[in-house]
């Protein structure tokens, strides 16, 4: 294991700098964590970093032009921009209900994109 790097722990607001050794498959804590909770975080961050993705999708005929969305699960970091690209090219027709799946299996990640807001159809006067 050659690669040594610092991971800022985000479990609590202290933000310990945890020094780890990793080659992407193996993992070892060198030090820096003030509590045990940081170990699990550092492991997943070193071996398989993932992020919740929150963004928005274009809505046609809605009371709002956009609906906010999130990924159903954390997305592998390297796939974030592929998912964003698919999101950017998607449009949905109002009404949209909060919790409704808008994209299934986004960018072949197996992860869905789900509405986090209800957008009703625009009232026409």
């Amino acid at each position: 294991m050659t690669d040594e790097r610092n991971i800022t722990c985000i479990v609590c607001p202290i933000g310990c700098k945890i020094l780890v050794k990793t080659d992407g498959a193996q993992f070892e804590i060198v030090g820096g964590n003030k509590c045990k909770r940081g170990i699990e975080y550092a492991r997943s961050e070193a071996l398989d970093p993932r992020r919740m993705l929150t963004t928005s999708i274009l809505v046609n005929d809605g009371e709002w032009p956009l609906v906010s969305v999130k990924s159903s699960k954390p997305v592998p970091e390297e796939k974030l921009f592929s998912v964003l690209k698919e999101v950017g090219g998607t449009a949905v027709k109002a009404p949209v209900k909060s919790g409704q799946t808008i994209i299934k299996n986004a960018a072949n990640t197996g992860i869905d994109i789900v509405a986090t807001k209800t957008v009703l159809t625009k009232e026409v006067d």
């Binding site: 274009l58 956009l66 950017g88």
Partner: peptide, 8 residues
């Protein structure tokens, strides 16, 4: 616009 009306 952020979305639509333009090619990204």
């Amino acid at each position: 616009k952020t979305r639509g009306n333009q090619s990204d």
